[in-house]
Write a protein that binds this DNA or RNA. Structure first.
Length: 436
RNA sequence: GUGAGAGUAGCUCAAUCGGUAGAGCGCCGGACUGUGGCUCCGGAUGUUGCGGGUUCGAUCCCCGUCUCUCACCCCA
């Protein structure tokens, strides 16, 4: 049997209902903040990610799906979307359009990691980028937008973690200091940390080994080593959040894995996700455009791990309403071939009219005895059954059976359409439940 | 890439101290010649993940491999 390859999966109904809801909520919120959708290719020149994400990151050095094209070029399935969005920003000279560039995207990303809870090789991200301003007010607005999305989808109990990791003016000095301090305590740390101290000292801060914690606590904090400009930027952001009454925790030890981040970084975590507890992550990338050969274009963005978001919602008990047919068509054949059978022809015609009126109609492709047919209708949780058989054809009125009230009425075609016009409860219900 | 646990019907699981598998749900049909989620009866579906070894004989023991799950690493 051919199976979906490792780390990929099929999303099936009814689960996809929740996915659709999440995406619908996100789109609706993006619209209110005046973000427009961008769709970029799922594969790009390998160089884009090498230069954008960073040659030394784990993503680029060991997790990309890279392959040679027939003409010899090196292509890569996108491991994230920010590099592509900034590439498009440069390619199409989007800075020449009026106002701040605000773009959102959603779609699959690819990283070859060992799968685990909330982590897949093909996973989905819903993200946005605001490019063209370094104002902390943009950062603050983006965090507000995120809260709107999480809450709009029904997520409770999340936590916003915030940090500032400085810029090219102050981070090198901080790293220097950190290295020096790590040199002094080197022998007391775990093996992983000693390795990190040399390769990527920031990662030491992220260590989870209990024995290392007291040592790490005494290391210098990024937030204490920011230059004046970065410090002011971070303080302004926090002032707006406080003014707004938005809860957050400054976590100076929070480190992000992409090289392009500067200043503000953040993540929203949800407990119940296991080890991968970040539902989303993001931050500022003031130097990315220039690193990709574009103009100076400070920006900030985030990415929601849709798979994890859906998981968190499930953990929070959020379940979308089950999709159910409004009308199940029961047709009782007179024994002729379906195309010629008058019952089928009437059922087919009625189904068309009811669908045109916006109803969900199930027309079974095989005729069954009435008992079986109603049993099916019941199992599918249909609201009504419309019965068309010999008697109905003779009298020109169909039997509409309310499967919840267990009552039936005989209605002509016209009366049926009027009935559903006046009883929009099933349709109305769907609209209230937030599916646009 | 490393470690641990698990793979038996579409789903959830049982079983054999080694003697080639069952239940519930679901699916299909009948009882029921036009009135439902019930009941009863019947039916289909498994090379017991795959490959090898031990054995008269392996779903069970051993080795390998694949996949899944969780964790490390890393990240969304």
């Amino acid at each position: 049997m051919i199976r979906a390859i490792k780390g990929t999966r099929d999303l099936l109904p009814p689960d996809t209902e929740l996915w659709n809801r999440v995406e619908a909520v996100a789109r609706a919120v993006f619209r209110t903040y005046n973000y427009g959708e961008i769709r970029t290719p799922v594969f790009e020149e390998t160089q884009l990610f090498a230069r954008g994400v960073g040659e030394e990151t784990d993503i680029v050095s060991k997790e990309m799906y890279t392959f040679e094209d027939r003409d010899g070029g090196s292509l890569t399935l996108r491991p994230e979307a920010t590099a592509s969005v900034v590439r498009a920003y440069i390619q199409h000279r989007l800075w020449e359009r009026p106002g701040l560039t605000r773009l959102y995207y959603m779609g699959p990303m690819f990283r070859r990691e060992r799968p685990q809870k909330g982590r897949y090789r093909q996973f989905y991200q819903i993200g946005a980028e605001a490019i063209g301003s370094e104002s902390p007010l943009v950062d603050a607005e983006m965090l507000q937008m995120l809260a709107d999305i999480l809450e709009g989808a029904g997520l409770k109990q999340y936590e916003l973690r915030l940090n500032s990791i400085g810029d090219p003016a102050c981070r090198p000095a901080y790293l220097e200091r950190l290295r020096a301090e790590l040199g002094k305590v080197g022998e007391q740390l775990c093996g992983d940390c000693r390795r990190r101290a040399a390769t990527n000292p920031l990662r030491v801060l992220d260590c989870k080994i209990p024995a290392d914690q007291p040592i790490i606590e005494r290391l210098p904090r990024v937030t204490d080593c920011l230059c004046a400009a970065c410090r002011e930027h971070f303080e302004t952001l926090q002032a707006v959040l406080r003014q707004r009454g938005m809860a957050y925790t400054v976590v100076p030890r929070m480190v992000r894995g992409l090289d392009y981040y500067t200043r503000t970084t953040f993540e929203f975590v949800h407990h119940g996700l296991g080890a991968q507890n970040a539902v989303l992550g993001g931050g500022r990338y003031d130097g990315l455009s220039e690193a990709l050969g574009g103009p100076k274009a400070p920006g900030i963005g985030f990415s929601i791990g849709a798979d994890r978001f859906v998981l968190s919602l499930e953990e929070s008990g959020v379940t979308p309403p089950a999709v159910r047919p409004d009308v199940y068509m029961v047709w009782l054949p007179a024994g002729e071939a379906p195309a010629a059978d008058p019952a089928f022809r009437q059922a087919d015609e009625m189904a068309r009219l009811l669908r045109a009126a916006g109803l969900v109609v199930e027309l079974p492709p095989e005729a069954r005895k009435i008992g079986r047919a109603l049993e099916q209708a019941g199992k599918l949780n249909a609201r009504y059954a419309l019965i068309i058989g010999e008697n109905e054809l003779r009298e020109g009125r169909y039997q509409l059976k309310d499967l919840e009230q267990r009552e039936a009425r005989q209605l002509s075609r016209q009366e049926l359409l009027e009935f559903f016009e006046n009883h929009k409860d099933t349709k109305a219900q769907r609209h209230e439940e937030g599916i646009p």
